[in-house]
Design a protein around this nucleic acid. Structure first.
Lengths: 152, 152
DNA sequence: CCACATGTAACTAATCTTGTTACGGAATGG
DNA sequence: CCATTCCGTAACAAGATTAGTTACATGTGG
């Protein structure tokens, strides 16, 4: 387990859900992601709270999209996951007394802030529908069609 | 332990070394960073291999700068540390068979690549001397001067 | 009621960074 | 020389985090 892969997984899932129409159980989604239903529920909980998906219990229950993919940006999902820390590199001490370290922090913070702003604005500018469209292109140019839900 | 803070620490150390002239033992550096001499040696080993510092054994030994700070960029140190992974967020699977996941990966990779390029170019454009200069400014505007090696 | 789903807490496993211990080896000063 | 001081490195422990798992409670529909 190297890094947080929840954003990647959620995008993957949401596109499949869109292509499926009907509800998908945590169990099915877990199989698709090669993981566990509990992990799915845990991760999707954030998306439900933000109104991007709905969950229903009991017979015929499961997860459904609550909004069209064109209305959900990558940033929306990033935020729904709690805006996790973007960088794996960071400062040794946040508010050091040492003036040298303060200067080091200022320089690094500038760089991180700028890079993060770029990433966030990129996330904001791409909807999940954009990614789904890219999938359609790949699918249509594929020599061996595998069906719209093909995975693994 | 949340993230990799070696870059931050090395910048801090190099500036102090520059202000000290003379060699600093791993023990002294460790005290400055609130850590252990072994960690210092481990981390500085990369900088030595790239020719930014030298180490000498025995009496009067320790670490010395091998080049002026104006000739060392933040990127140089980042690379000397092995170019560690910049992001804490990443893809679930690097080369998935699923076409949907391939599209998701492509979109995320674009965003990460762009943000990382910004960060790297920022790192490349700042020398450690630039940071030291910023320290001088802070020091001169400081109400209670603490001496050039003040720390903690 | 019963089967099927989600909701959630609690625990385990795997991984990563850092800290620590323990030696080995080299340089220096007496 | 030989003790001291220093780095070099391997090996292991600690702490934190993400993901996986087990277990059970809750809700829903037939």
């Amino acid at each position: 387990m190297r890094h947080d892969s929840r954003l990647s997984r959620m995008l993957h899932v949401l596109i499949h859900m869109d292509r499926h129409n009907g509800s998908a159980t945590s169990e099915k989604i877990a199989q698709m992601l090669n993981t566990n239903p509990v992990v799915v529920r845990r991760t999707m909980a954030g998306l439900r709270e933000e109104g991007y998906v709905r969950s229903e219990k009991g017979h015929g229950g499961g997860w459904t999209l609550a909004r069209p993919l064109g209305e959900i940006s990558l940033l929306d999902i990033h935020r729904a996951l709690g805006s996790p820390e973007v960088f794996a590199i960071g400062l040794a001490v946040d508010h050091p007394d040492c003036l040298v370290e303060q200067s080091v922090n200022a320089a690094l913070r500038d760089a991180f802030t700028e890079a993060e702003a770029i990433l966030i604005s990129r996330f904001a500018g791409v909807t999940i529908a954009d990614i789904a469209r890219d999938f359609d292109d790949r699918f249509n140019n594929c020599d061996q069609p595998q069906g719209p839900g093909a995975c693994n």
